[in-house]
């Protein structure tokens, strides 16, 4: 089995605007290994959200390839994309993350239900994961009864519980204060590393990069720079908000 969880090759996504063609993602290539946590940064309009949407199998690329755990999603029918999202991808969003009428535990277990993997053992694992995220007392709370940070942590548990190959997080700290934001991303990073999943976080807050292994910087749809190594990433994190 390959240690590459995600492989992006010459990816292009074009949109037409007023008769002109704009490449929101322009010839981007990179790989993410299992157990690696990567940040995707860049200014507004740099193409990072479009990139994330393609990686999440929610948007089809114009050209190029995206392989998740060896499966090429650019060739997939919609039905297979749904299956891929359910089995191979974990997702947290900026907001509206959780199903409002399901409790914290039910939201996490829902991914197991969807995959037909809900049993006694997986229920215990789900409760343990929530406890690990500091939510042991909140298992039966509905999203409306939890703070933004707690909701994000439930979303992280939901994104990880079914052991997906790739976990995507779109600005998960956007609505959190600095302290909560650090806590959420640090926990996220720890779980990615411990479980050997590949993680990608999209953030405009460069301070969050201190918890990742690599930073991909995008600008005008292109991958303009890759930051690797603790020292280089620390320097970037010191720069603060993008």
């Amino acid at each position: 089995m390959s240690d590459i969880a995600l492989e992006v090759k010459d990816l292009v996504k074009s949109f037409s605007l007023d008769g002109a063609t704009i490449n929101a993602v322009d010839q981007v290539s990179f790989q993410v290994k299992f157990g690696e946590f990567v940040a995707l940064v860049g200014p507004s309009g740099s193409g990072k959200t479009t990139m994330l949407s393609i990686l999440a199998a929610l948007l089809s690329p114009t050209s190029g390839q995206v392989l998740i755990d060896g499966q090429d999603l650019s060739q997939m029918a919609e039905k297979d994309r749904v299956k891929l999202r359910r089995e191979k991808i974990g997702f947290t969003f900026q907001a509206n993350n959780l199903i409002p009428y399901l409790s914290a535990r039910e939201n996490v277990e829902f991914m197991l239900r969807l995959n037909g993997k809900l049993d006694h053992g997986s229920r215990i694992r789900s409760d343990e994961l929530l406890a690990r995220l500091g939510l042991a007392e909140r298992l039966h709370n509905l999203p409306a009864q939890m703070s933004g940070g707690q909701q994000q942590r439930v979303a992280i548990a939901r994104a990880l519980i079914h052991n997906p190959a790739l976990v995507l997080a779109d600005e998960p700290t956007a609505s959190l204060d600095t302290e909560r934001a650090f806590q959420v991303v640090e926990t996220f990073a720890n779980l990615i590393h411990e479980n050997g999943r590949a993680g990608i976080i999209v953030t405009h807050d460069l301070r969050m990069c201190q918890f990742v292994d690599r930073v991909l910087q995008m600008q005008d749809g292109k991958l303009v720079r890759v930051y690797e190594g603790k020292k280089e990433i620390k320097q970037l994190a010191m720069a603060g908000v993008h």
Binding site: K79, V82, R85, R86, N96, N97, L98, I99, M111, L114
Partner: peptide, 8 residues
């Protein structure tokens, strides 16, 4: 959200 996480 339901669709994004894989509900058909």
């Amino acid at each position: 959200v339901l669709k994004a996480i894989g509900s058909s």
